[in-house]
Design a protein around this nucleic acid. Structure first.
Lengths: 134, 134
DNA sequence: ATCTCAATGGATATATTCATCCCTAGAGTT
DNA sequence: AACTCTAGGGATGAATATATCCATTGAGAT
């Protein structure tokens, strides 16, 4: 449904969401999230290119959420790493699997998909903070 | 949520479910399902070891569903390839993420998981036949 | 017995994902 | 200007998943 990398990204953003406006070093994020530091930098770099985070080099630098990204649904984040999330695709990979001509899993899968889609749209990056805002 | 190999397995079983009691050659299954013949044989071999299918060598041989497997929930099939399906795991990989101490995605994910689990238990191998029984 | 057919199984190849290494660029400090 | 700090980026490595190849085994046909 989503890659390990995408899951990493959510963890990172959840951490950053707790420190709004503050530059946090990659090293610290890696330590707190348990994500390998080198790999983390690649992930954050992609998030930067999509304007989900901003970065600052040198002394006192680090990463922080872009304020505008706070209201971004996590769907957009996952798509950065996993591409278009086509959960609509038939599990059997039948060409024309739809309500009229359903594969044996169609109805079940549709229910899964509906809940999943709802999650992707309902949860925003800002909502990923592990602890509720004070 | 599941690997390509597991999805292949479902396709194969769906095809075999339409030909109960009949030996069907790997070559034919590969042709019908679009799965690479060599890879297909590996998949069927694993299914055989788990008594989901039976096989027969030589002239007139092939594969067929084990009659008893007809009532097997597809959960068992997917687990052959993907191991224990721990959808219960927290997306954030927090150690103690539960109803009392939920991560930001907990409730949403729980709904997805519930529907998914239901699918795994409700659909049986016999139920995978692409066309309804006559 | 011999032949042919089709699954079995081991070895190998390819692709993708995940992770590491190390050098460079840019920002603040002194 | 020299130094230190931290992100950026290219190249490489490791692990896993997917796919292919080929020799062997066992079964029926003759």
């Amino acid at each position: 449904m989503y890659s390990a990398t995408a899951r990493y990204a959510l963890r990172i953003l959840g951490f950053l969401a707790e420190r709004p406006g503050q530059w946090v070093q990659g090293r610290e994020i890696a330590g707190a999230t348990g994500i390998p530091a080198n790999y983390l930098s690649k992930i954050l770099n992609q998030l930067r290119k999509k304007r989900v985070v901003a970065s600052q080099k040198g002394w006192g630098g680090g990463f922080r959420l872009e304020p505008a990204a706070t209201r971004m649904p996590i769907r957009d984040v996952l798509e950065v790493f996993d591409g278009q999330l086509d959960t609509r695709a038939c599990v059997f990979e039948l060409r024309d699997c739809d309500a009229d001509n359903p594969c044996p899993l169609h109805d079940h899968w549709e229910r899964v998909r509906t809940e999943y889609d709802q999650m992707l749209d309902a949860v925003t990056v800002g909502g990923l903070r592990a602890r509720p805002a004070r």
